[in-house]
Computed example of a mutant assay.
Amino acid sequence: MAKVTLDRLRKVYPNGFVGVDDASFEVADGELLVLVGPSGCGKSTLLRMIAGLETISGGELRIGERVVNDVPPKDRDIAMVFQSYALYPHMTVAENLGFGLKLRGAGRDEIARRVREAAAMLELEALLERKPAALSGGQRQRVALGRALVRQPQVFLLDEPLSNLDAKLRAGMRVEIAKLHRRLGATMIYVTHDQIEAMTLGQRIVVLRDGRIQQIDTPMALYDRPANLFVATFVGSPKMNLLRGEVVEREGGLRLRIRDGIELPLRLEGALAEAVRGYLGRPLVVGLRPEDLHLHGEAGGRGLPAQVELVESVGNEAFVNLDCGGCDLVLRTAPRGLPRAGDAVQLGYDAARMHYFDPDSERRLG
């Protein structure tokens, strides 16, 4: 296996559109790194640049210690798994698994050994004589993974490999890919638009938007300390609640005035308190995760006043959709003792878990 290093990588198309701008990061040897972002953010383009399927307009790409900017895909020692399974319909599973090795001139015994090893790892032994038409979606995806596995490449590249599967199969295959990574200790770069997939699979995550990297960090660091508003609302389901208002000072301290009669006390200390104080009389955005809000009591009690719009019970938890002075909020709670649509409630919140953002730059304070 090998590390992958991107140094100020750029992709500019002939019409001047910048698909990837100044991407710099390193994927450690044996790491599973996830590229995540909305459609059109440049994540698949970046993966295809690493694979050699897209030309590099600027910067340097290294696999191991070798610069591979102009190295053909077949000589980069990588294996790629696509969103489409791309299996040969006239070949059996065993023939599909071994076809890449056959093209590279591997001997028959070597092909048979590697196919057996990959089939055992992915529980495909009973399917080796079947053709793709006789396989389920999950089985076809495992064959596509196995075809990459038998190559024993330096780097695995996976481009949204689970997006064609239903929800149950997707969850199962996520577990299989994570187990496979632990077993192989392989260097893997995984592309997805699904932030749940990114959070559950990635040892580190690269969040992209409009071709630019927004933040690189571990899943929980992204969740707990998002660098900007985009990351804050993209990572997490339901997304982070955002309260917009003006910072004012009352006898009890700083508050966010959402509208007349609705103010959110800001319990701050240290450098963050000074940073927020700099916004007195100016707009500020405050974020709270759905689990950091709670139903505080009846209308007229202490807390943040809101009205229940919709209650979604999903079995082990419930999501309460609320309107708070024109701000849409979602609260995550246990599915018992729930309010009803139209109820006026008071919201409590975990002040230590608040996030503060500049409304213009969208960057996190502190």
Rank of each mutant, 00 (worst) to 15 (best):
K131N: 10
A133F: 06
A133D: 14
A134C: 06
L135I: 04
S136A: 08
G138R: 01
G138T: 05
G138I: 06
R140T: 06
R140K: 09
R142A: 11
V143R: 05
A144M: 09
A144S: 15
G146T: 08
A148P: 12
A148W: 06
L149I: 14
R151N: 13
R151Y: 12
Q152K: 15
Q152H: 14
P153K: 00
V155C: 08
V155H: 00
V155M: 04
V155D: 05
L157C: 12
L158F: 15
E160Q: 08
L162V: 03
L162N: 09
N164C: 13
L165G: 06
L165T: 11
K168Q: 14
A171H: 02
G172V: 06
G172N: 14
E176Q: 14
E176A: 08
E176K: 12
I177Q: 03
A178V: 14
K179L: 15
K179R: 15
R182A: 15
R182G: 07
R183D: 05
L184F: 02
T187W: 11
M188D: 07
Y190F: 15
T192R: 03
H193E: 14
H193Y: 13
H193L: 13
D194E: 08
I196C: 07
E197R: 10
A198R: 01
A198G: 07
A198Y: 03
T200R: 00
L201I: 02
G202C: 03
G202F: 00
I205L: 04
V207W: 02
D210C: 09
G211K: 07
G211H: 04
R212G: 09
Q214Y: 11
T218M: 01
T218S: 11
P219M: 03
M220L: 06
Y223K: 00
Y223E: 07
P226H: 03
A227C: 11
L229M: 13
L229V: 07
V231F: 10
V231Q: 09
A232M: 10
S237I: 09
P238G: 00
K239T: 15
K239Y: 05
M240P: 08
G245I: 07
V247Y: 02
V248Q: 14
E249D: 09
R250I: 01
G252L: 07
R255E: 15
R255S: 13
R255Q: 14
